[in-house]
């Protein structure tokens, strides 16, 4: 996959560093809110085709998906992949009481996505000195055919995984940028590197 990465090594290292900081802030935010320890993986930066994105997002079973678009200096979508397991423990931390109704579960995954995606995007934007606005999250149940019909060829994908220490819950946040935003981001990274 690394063949088609549209970033040079320096840009990529810089972005990686920025993401590290942004994701750390995001994890802190969530930890503060639910008063528990949260671990993050090292952010992955790759370039994917629609089919690769599909398997990246929907390769595992027993997961929920949400998506959120963001507008501003850079544009794109954040797709969150949340594990079903451990969700009830997180729900307890978020002050929901058992048993969880279908609506409760939906509300929780939308809220979790919103918090993490929001925190990640806010962190990244402030590091890059760009402004972005995140729109509201919605539940996402895609199918393979739709992905095969997507118009783009490659997309830059930034992926980070959050795991909650006290439960089996984990969540991946995947940022996808459109082409214009990629150029914009590269320029910004170059400015920062100078």
């Amino acid at each position: 996959m690394s063949v088609v990465i549209p970033l040079d090594e320096e840009q990529r290292d810089a972005l990686q560093e920025l993401l590290n900081i942004a994701m750390g802030q995001a994890a802190n935010s969530l930890a503060q809110l639910i008063e528990t320890k949260i671990d993050i993986s090292i952010p992955k930066i790759t370039s994917v085709t629609p089919a690769q994105l599909y398997s990246l997002l929907f390769g595992s079973q027993d997961t929920f998906h949400t998506r959120q678009s963001f507008l501003g200096d850079i544009q794109g979508e954040v797709i969150s992949v949340l594990s079903r397991s451990g969700l009830s423990e997180i729900a307890k931390l978020m002050d929901y009481s058992d048993p969880l109704s279908k609506e409760d579960v939906e509300e929780i995954i939308l809220e979790l996505s919103n918090i993490l995606a929001g925190a990640c995007l806010a962190g990244l934007s402030s590091q890059l000195e760009l402004t972005t606005n995140l729109n509201m999250p919605t539940l996402f149940t895609p199918n393979k055919e739709n992905f095969d019909e997507l118009k783009w060829q490659h997309s830059l994908v930034m992926e980070v995984q959050f795991t909650v220490a006290v439960s089996s819950f984990s969540m991946r946040v995947v940022f996808c940028l459109d082409d214009d935003s990629l150029t914009r981001m590269k320029d910004t990274l170059d400015e920062l590197l100078d």
């Binding site: 935010s29 503060q32 809110l33 609506e103 509300e107 919103n114 929001g118 509201m136």
Partner: peptide
Amino acid sequence: LQHPSFSYWEQ
């Protein structure tokens, strides 16, 4: 979080 929060009628 200093970040917007959303709620929908469905839930």
